[in-house]
Design a protein around this nucleic acid. Structure first.
Lengths: 241, 241
DNA sequence: AAGAGTTTGTGAACGTGTTAACAAAATCGA
DNA sequence: TCGATTTTGTTAACACGTTCACAAACTCTT
């Protein structure tokens, strides 16, 4: 095999892993951790795929973008594969995040237990409200919004989380970018504009529920137009997020 | 035009609106609300698309699945389009949700201001912890997990939100399904298995941050392998969630 | 009434993501 | 060693999503 695939460069470094695959790798990682905790040493793509809730072929294709880490006729070594995915995802190091906005959501996020085991560390909390500045939330002192620049550069923070009300989101995003942040997770129900080279992911709680409501409505109208008894026979699929 | 498109049935009812479109309609709705508040009566696809952060062609195609609600050479009537999308999304009625798990995240969700204006109403809170049962969170008395059946049927609740730790997620999902719920929003970091006909959407906070960390890592390694000064010239795109 | 200027709605090309199917590569028993 | 069995890695077909580009349909000016 001398022909280079488009996902690999000449140096063998994996490149251009599809976005859809990148979004699933953490799911596989979590499934592998669960298996490792159960003492499972090796597993086939079928088992792992079921744990992760995906099609086995999809799982194998996803893994093939990273390299050939399985053994034909055998399966995958749980620990080895776990390490390889973790390395690809950058989890061999810890990533420090700053949470901007320490309201209900910001507080919940800073208390979230799941981060530490996934290479995520809440390194700083920031709020614009003087009443909140100085208070301790989840063991971290809340800093004023003005100190964002200093915090980011001093503590090598690379990811910012916006957990403010919608009207403040754009200004916070601007400040994060000005401070040198190039990855933002936005929980505020607003679209933020950022310069080229900055990644923004958006999580919108209302929208998730609105999407479910839409499907619920469709199911309801399908039930009434068909036999109203056949509630469990509707064939709508599970919608992944 | 007598030929039926695949997205329309003989009765003219819109069907099979693409998932990607459904996920964006609430965004358009929010953009339209923002415009309406500014007193804008009419707008072109260009303006609305910019507000919503999407390509204008995509916006027009999305809207075309609902019908022809614009006027060529003019644009869209803000109020009229707002109503049409709201109707399609089922927002002419309120949707009642039950939140299971009143920890940090569950409390934050129940206090979330954005739901009420989007046709979402938190109708009940449920927790397995006897210490939490009976307490009042955001004005709602927390009920015991056992009463789920009664709550759901009495209050016509159609959507369930799982905000429990991961180990409890599957059992909660089973109980929600047993109570007749067919739409679930899962915040627990676990894959839940549900029967055919039940929709599950998953929001995973760690995974969102892990995806950002991956892109951050790629940006960092691209910078070191290229000129280390050219930080702002990287051409990575904004990653939508 | 006609022409210039807008802006929608959509066909068609393109790109990305999913999945079935199978050859290649491993194990295992005889 | 050989054949049977298992399971990966990958190809190729398909489905889905995006975007360009343009005719159709509207307004406005003259």
């Amino acid at each position: 095999m001398t022909i280079l695939r488009s996902t690999r460069l000449a140096d063998g470094t994996a490149r251009g892993i599809p976005d859809a695959t990148v979004a699933r790798l953490p799911v596989y990682l979590r499934a592998l951790n669960a298996l490792a905790e159960q003492g499972v040493l090796s597993c086939a793509s079928n088992e792992l795929a079921e744990q992760a809730g995906v099609n086995p072929a999809k799982l194998r294709k996803d893994l093939s973008y990273l390299g050939s880490y399985g053994t034909r006729g055998v399966g995958y070594d749980v620990e080895y594969l776990r390490y390889q995915i973790a390395r690809e995802m950058g989890q061999t190091q810890d990533w420090d995040v700053v949470i901007v906005g320490v309201g209900n959501l910001g507080s919940a996020l800073s208390a979230y237990q799941g981060f530490s085991t996934r290479g995520i560390r809440v390194a700083a909390l920031v709020d614009a409200d003087p009443q909140r500045v100085g208070t301790v939330v989840s063991g971290i002192v809340v800093s004023p919004l003005d100190t964002l620049d200093t915090l980011v550069s001093e503590r090598q923070i690379s990811i910012g989380v916006i957990a403010t009300p919608a009207p403040a989101a754009q200004e916070v995003a601007d400040r994060l970018v000005a401070a040198g942040i190039t990855s933002i997770l936005n929980f505020a129900p607003a679209i933020v504009q950022v310069p080229e080279g900055v990644d923004v992911r958006k999580v919108d709680l209302s929208i998730e529920l609105q999407i479910l409501a839409y499907h619920e409505q469709r199911k309801a109208s399908a039930d009434t137009s068909a036999t109203s008894k056949a509630t469990s026979k509707t064939t709508s699929k599970v919608v992944s997020a």
